[in-house]
Computed example of a mutant assay.
Amino acid sequence: MKKLSAGFALFVALCFPVMPAGAAGLSEGIRQIYLQQKDGTEQSIGELVFSAAQHDQFSYKVTMNHHLFKDYFLSMKEMKCLEGPELWCFIPYPYEQPRTVSSEDFRWLEHDLLFMFKKPEAFGANFWNGIYYKMELTENGIRGTAHALDLNLLASPPDDLSQPPVGEFDIDSADLEKRWLPFIEIR
């Protein structure tokens, strides 16, 4: 067998890059969902099960570990919240959706992991204090960074249930220094 020239090896490497280790985050199987504080302290809050769907897509199922959350009755709604410097309340996406992801598109998963924060002493739920974790594939799995979202946007169903209703112009950067759980990881 002939030895490959350095130029040809470089050409192959550029045209056919090796999938990063994080791509394993999109293989079939069970992954843990962690919310992370600024200092890296993390807490597993549930699991995610990936199943092969079509082409480069995977279907998923989220199961939250609800016994970690406390029940709160806020603004006439029962909510499951984590307690800390802020209440971090899980807001399930309320409409039908396909529950699929690909290595380039995590929008449906981002919709299934919505939260709302509030100070423990504040009255009621402030849905404009929504948290939307914008996600990307990393070498260690999937990592999301908190962004601000007015959850009132989801008060009525979108016209097209097959498209994620939250778009890039609906989310804003969040003051990560002020938020208790600014990151999410799935690995």
Rank of each mutant, 00 (worst) to 15 (best):
P17W: 15
I45M: 02
S51Q: 09
D39S: 14
K38A: 13
A9W: 00
Q37K: 15
I33T: 04
Q32G: 01
I33L: 04
G46M: 03
A13M: 13
A24P: 01
P17R: 15
E47A: 03
R31C: 05
F16G: 02
P20T: 12
A23M: 09
E47V: 00
E42M: 07
G22V: 05
P20Y: 04
V18W: 08
Q43V: 12
S5M: 09
L48A: 05
K38I: 12
S5C: 10
S5A: 08
L26S: 00
E42H: 10
G29P: 03
V12A: 13
G25F: 02
E42Y: 04
F50Y: 07
S5G: 08
T41I: 09
V49S: 07
E42Q: 12
D39Y: 10
A23Q: 08
I33C: 05
I30M: 00
Q32I: 06
C15N: 12
A13Y: 11
V18L: 13
G7V: 08
A13W: 08
V18D: 11
G22P: 04
G25A: 10
A21C: 05
Y34A: 08
P20K: 06
C15R: 14
Q36M: 14
S51I: 04
P17Y: 15
Q32K: 10
F11G: 04
E42N: 11
P20S: 13
I30T: 10
Y34W: 09
I33A: 02
Q36R: 15
A21K: 00
L10P: 11
I30G: 02
P17S: 15
Q37W: 11
G29V: 01
A21I: 00
A24D: 10
A6I: 14
E47F: 01
Q43L: 13
G40D: 04
G7E: 15
A21F: 00
Q37V: 03
M19N: 12
F16W: 15
F8R: 12
D39E: 15
L14F: 08
G7C: 10
S27A: 08
A52F: 04
S51N: 12
A6M: 11
I45R: 03
Q32P: 01
G7K: 15
F50V: 01
Q32W: 03
F50D: 00
R31I: 01
A23K: 11
I45F: 05
A52I: 09
L26N: 06
P20F: 01
L14Y: 06
L35Q: 03
L10R: 12
R31F: 01
